[in-house]
Design a protein around this nucleic acid. Structure first.
Lengths: 241, 241
DNA sequence: CAAAAACAAGAGCACCGCTCTTGCTTTGAC
DNA sequence: GTCAAAGCAAGAGCGGTGCTCTTGTTTTTG
């Protein structure tokens, strides 16, 4: 139901989009800290106070950009997975690695947007409920791979016992998402999800400077380790065909 | 050679410390984004311009705080390791977990300082050489555990082949640090180091909200997984004594 | 003792987020 | 069709920011 009821509504949505576009441009150029409402308004040929009719505050504009960024990285992850062709399209470990690589490619080409969603939260900012859905997309994509592998009987379950508290969280999570996976697997999946972004943040935020030079190869290696950790069979290099 | 040559030098170093203390207080209270030179000066009863005699810019003040934060988290890690008593003091996996728990405790009690060093880098800020040493302390502590385990023959080496580029980085790193560890172990160690902070960042930055509730237990479980990944023997719950 | 260096203070610049008031235009009910 | 109501752009203004420059004063040094 996106019926456009008049020139005013149409203009409003167009201007809202223009503001977000310009803000995204400044975000990519200078980072979130230097995103200024005044500069956005100046670039759009309007006066700064007029902008407050579209976004009540700078933080609300940032929230809109955050939601967009979560969706963008989610699309990148799902797209990289769906772009797999040939036998790899069916191999769980390959699907896992493709998702991770898709996230990394997006992060490397949108470092400031990555920092916006996976870096320090903005000071007085509290993530509204609208962000939680998009924020879960990458995690859900990873979980889908594990779920499929589990359904196909291709998942190696961990043998270590799981503390009750962790198992409880995992069961609640599985119930909420409506997925049937052992608690131990879900717990490791959540860990791998967080650890993936540890690798990316260290690379993007400069912690790997003068430590890791072969970034892509290192990332692939580490991601394969994460896949192994959650129970996906990682084929040896050049083993299967 | 910290010979104090006169009242002026003494006053200078005292004022410099007072500025850092007040800045740290504001950092803890409001976060890095809201740290203002004017507010620091106001609180210290001086005029803002006078502050520029001690720190050429706001970023230079932040750099000083960054170095301090890196050292603080390093001390927390080493302290937690050295506080181990009894048989755990000799067990590599226990030492590994103690270091990780020490880092986490520090992070939870200094969230803004954590965000300052492991969150989004400040916009136009380039980490000076002075930060790289302190930044490596946690990683070095973790490596020490693995090195000791390796020397004692208690390390399980990974069997997977390592890409040449990654092996090259690992060998260079090992040579630079003067540590004798197989390249594959070093590569996994660097990965685990980054992944540790992925777990912490997700917890501190709110990504675990409504996902993981038993934070401490989950962290311990995940950290044990990292230890396993680098080849340390993780005893079963209640197995050894 | 005088020159030089270090220093605090104040004024000022250009910018920021945000609010309030003033008019103009579009909309929608009568 | 008329006309009040709502939506909107613009401007002025508030208090804040980082940072620079100038003006005197104090301390150190040759």
């Amino acid at each position: 139901m996106t019926v456009i009821r008049g020139a005013r509504e149409r203009a409003r949505s167009e201007i809202t989009e223009a503001i977000k576009d310009e803000a995204r441009r400044q975000l990519a150029a200078e980072g979130a800290a230097k995103l200024s409402l005044r500069a956005v308004a100046r670039e759009l040929g309007m006066v700064s106070s007029a902008l407050y009719r579209y976004f009540p505050s700078r933080d609300d504009l940032l929230t809109a950009l955050i939601v967009d960024a979560y969706n963008a990285v989610g699309v990148a992850a799902e797209g990289a997975r769906d772009a797999l062709r040939g036998p790899d399209a069916e191999r769980p470990a390959a699907r896992w690695s493709a998702i991770c690589a898709g996230v990394r490619d997006w992060a490397l080409s949108h470092p400031h947007e990555y920092a916006l969603i996976y870096g320090s939260p903005v000071p007085g900012y509290r993530a509204p409920q609208a962000t939680t859905g998009p924020a879960a997309r990458v995690g859900l994509a990873l979980m889908g791979v594990v779920r499929d592998a589990y359904a196909a009987g291709a998942l190696k379950e961990p043998s270590e016992p799981l503390p009750d508290a962790v198992a409880g969280d995992a069961l609640a999570l599985g119930a909420e998402l409506g997925v049937e996976l052992p608690a131990a697997v879900l717990a490791r999946l959540v860990g791998a999800w967080a650890q993936l972004f540890g690798l990316l943040s260290f690379e993007l935020f400069g912690q790997f400077n003068q430590v890791v030079e072969a970034r892509t190869e290192f990332f692939e290696q580490a991601v394969a380790g994460l896949a192994r950790e959650v129970g996906l069979a990682v084929p040896r290099r050049g083993a299967a065909g």
